[in-house]
Design a protein around this nucleic acid. Structure first.
Length: 302
DNA sequence: GGCTGTACGCCAGTTACTTCA
DNA sequence: CATGAAGTAACTGGCGTACAG
């Protein structure tokens, strides 16, 4: 059972556009186990479809969308970025050299592809491959506009089919391989962020469990001390004034009792009305909700 | 229908480069 | 100005899947 949205102190809305799965990660200590498991098991390594709400630039926010739209309006996406544009956007960053990207499996596949070969030649800001020698790997810094468009596209679908990839590459004046790499890196970044969030979440869970364990150990010690003490039985309230419900183990006191035990009318319809609820290890360190024990009435208050 | 080779996409890990404090 | 850290584009190798022969 998921925690309600109003219960979330810090929630991550993880919307997955492709299959419309939605996942929320609650970082509050008061997490129920199912919420924890859903947040952690919902991630599939082969389909890391998380959309993490980042504090700096939330791709899901309206402001971000508006900003991106304005950026989209601001540039002519059908125009190949010129070298001058590159200089303007990225200062003295190096022009895009494609020589070093012709390597490995990818180039084996894409290097011989006709369309993509065209894109290779048409894009890359008119810089020839061998401008910087054969071994250097010059890195292109994508312009803000390009990054914004890629981000917007990623927001819609975090993977691209070949058609989308080609269209986007053409739109941005990049090679399809660059678009593909950008999406791969973007997915990796998203996953990394999510991993960090999950790690933080597990850390909190661990802290809560430690605290709960400490509390229970203390309670056990108190109970043992009381059991060994001969005065324990002397201090016990006579059974005529305190009765315990065998079903829910709650102590019922007469209406006149001024003690802290539950004085409300306590009637059960059937013997199975109450059932034992396991302790929630994901709950906060605060005492779990349960009926008072007989020891609660006699335990010294701290 | 099962097997094999090929193409392709994705991922984790890494490298190389840029930017910034 | 030099430098280290952080960010990120690009590369590499491995794995899974689809498909044709």
């Amino acid at each position: 059972m998921m925690a309600g949205k109003e219960d979330l102190g810090l929630s991550l809305s993880l919307s997955v556009p492709q299959n419309q799965h939605s996942l929320q990660l609650n970082l509050m200590p008061s997490l129920v186990p199912s919420a924890a498991s859903s947040s952690l098991s919902g991630f599939h390594p082969q389909n890391p479809s998380w959309n993490v709400t980042f504090p700096s630039s939330d791709p899901n926010s309206n402001s971000y969308r508006a900003e991106t739209r304005s950026l989209l309006r601001g540039i002519d996406v059908n125009r190949l970025p010129s070298t001058a544009d590159c200089e303007e956007e990225v200062g003295v960053s190096s022009p895009n050299s494609t020589i070093s990207s012709i390597s490995g499996k990818r180039s084996e596949r894409e290097g011989i592809n006709g369309d993509e070969h065209e894109m290779e030649r048409a894009s890359s800001r008119g810089i020839s491959d061998d401008e910087d020698g054969e071994t250097s790997r010059k890195k292109l810094r994508l312009s803000k506009d390009q990054a914004a468009i890629l981000e917007e596209s990623f927001k819609e679908h975090n993977t691209l089919n070949p058609k989308q990839k080609m269209a986007l590459a053409k739109q941005l004046g990049l090679r399809p391989r660059q678009v593909e790499v950008w999406f791969q890196n973007r997915r990796a970044r998203t996953k990394l962020k999510q991993t960090e969030v999950d790690c933080e979440f597990l850390k909190r869970c661990c802290e809560n469990l430690t605290e709960e364990n400490r509390r229970l150990q203390k309670e056990v010690q108190e109970l043992r001390a009381l059991k060994l003490s001969p005065q324990f039985y002397m201090q016990m309230t006579p059974p005529t004034t305190l009765t315990m419900c065998p079903s829910c183990e709650r102590v019922a006191a007469p209406p006149t009792a001024s003690s802290t035990v539950d004085a409300r009318p306590h009637t059960h319809i059937g013997p199975t009305r109450h059932r034992t609820v396991p302790m929630n290890p994901w709950a906060p360190a605060a005492p779990v909700t349960r009926g008072p024990t007989p020891f609660d009435a006699i335990r010294p208050r701290s």
